[in-house]
């Protein structure tokens, strides 16, 4: 098993290189001219300004040259400078990533808990009111666009009922906790500031639910289908014949046998949301990776686009590795191969 992980770890740098190369090449084949992002419109006809800008950003060099320079910089941890913010892309991402991670972690807690609980209940009480209710909840979750459900819930809970705060990560009047992990909830706890912690948690609640709802739809359907299959197997009958309680039969015996496909979806959803939570982040003014990616793409900010792509690719690589390790925990039959 440890040899398997070691092999995967050795393969990682090569996969990262592949991601970097593809991300780099894709930006060069786009029709857009990055100069529009750098040079003001009225200066575009000024050849001196254009030439200076090209020289400053290295756009006068050939593609292989630029690629080698980029790789060289990457080796020393430099992701380049953003055309727009003029800051280092790495710095920008380090500021954005924890916000997204905090949101996605919270969303996955909602999504997996709701998904698994609803899936199990729907399978156990098949064709009952609970089953139909769970189906409806999943259908809405996966088919309602986030800009609709997010705005709707924001309107109800924040504007109408005033139970939850509006968009953003934290009340503007509150001080930011010292950045240790970048997770406001954790940092505020580490600083011992419960007011900030409570506020950050309240801000997190709604966007995390909206995002988790979409995930819970997929998970609950998958868990339901797998539970129906597993519950009809003979070992479930054996467990009942032993005198095990229904709760024990369902949770200890059946649910664990459905974990492998569920883990796949959880891992995939997690990796996807790192860069794919754009709409949620936009609606809830969440300064995360998704909104950064959209801003970068809109402005043809190539260094930022490549940086986001690399982070997204890494997210998939890491979650895949973690998922594979968890497979082994969930299913002993994987251990042999």
């Amino acid at each position: 098993m440890s040899r398997y992980i070691l092999r995967r770890l050795i393969a990682m740098p090569f996969l990262v290189l592949g991601i970097v190369t593809i991300a780099f090449l894709i930006t060069t084949v786009t029709k857009g001219d990055p100069l529009t992002a750098i040079v003001a419109e009225q200066q575009m006809n000024n050849p001196e300004v254009v030439a200076a800008a090209k020289a400053r950003w290295g756009l006068d060099r050939s593609l292989p040259e630029r690629y080698m320079i980029y790789l060289g910089n990457l080796m020393s941890g430099d992701l380049g400078t953003s055309f727009i913010t003029k800051r280092n892309v790495g710095t920008d991402i380090l500021y954005r990533l924890p916000a997204t991670l905090e949101l996605v972690f919270a969303a996955m807690i909602f999504g997996t808990t709701l998904g698994i609980v609803l899936g199990v209940l729907a399978a156990y009480f098949r064709n009952s009111l609970i089953d139909h209710g769970a189906r409806l909840f999943a259908l809405f979750g996966s088919s309602l666009p986030v800009f609709w459900s997010g705005l709707g819930l924001l309107f109800i809970f924040s504007v109408m009922l005033n139970w939850l705060p509006g968009p953003g990560r934290l009340d503007a009047r509150l001080p930011l906790p010292p950045g240790i992990t970048g997770f406001l909830t954790i940092d505020s706890l580490l600083a011992g500031n419960l007011t900030v912690f409570k506020d950050a948690l309240w801000h997190l609640l709604l966007p995390a639910f909206v995002l988790g709802w979409t995930v819970s739809g997929t998970i609950s359907r998958l868990v339901r289908a797998n539970m129906l299959d597993v519950m009809s197997r003979e070992f479930v009958l054996t467990a009942r014949a032993k005198g095990a309680s229904e709760f024990r039969v369902v949770i200890v015996h059946a649910l664990r046998n459905t974990m492998v496909p569920t883990l796949t979806v959880i891992g995939y959803s997690f990796a996807y949301l790192i860069t794919g939570a754009v709409l949620t982040e936009t609606i809830f003014s969440w300064p995360g990776m998704g909104s950064y990616a959209v801003e970068a793409a809109r402005a043809l900010d190539f260094p930022a686009i490549i940086g986001v792509t690399i982070v997204g690719g890494l997210a998939f690589l890491v979650t895949n590795l973690v998922t594979d390790i968890l497979y082994v925990v969930a299913n002993p039959r994987v251990r042999l191969s």
């Binding site: 197997r233 003979e234 070992f235 054996t238 014949a241 015996h253 664990r256 969930a330 002993p332």
Partner: peptide, 12 residues
């Protein structure tokens, strides 16, 4: 006890 020993034990 049941017919199929292949499936009457919990695989995990």
């Amino acid at each position: 006890i049941f017919q199929d020993p292949l499936s009457s034990l919990n695989p995990v």
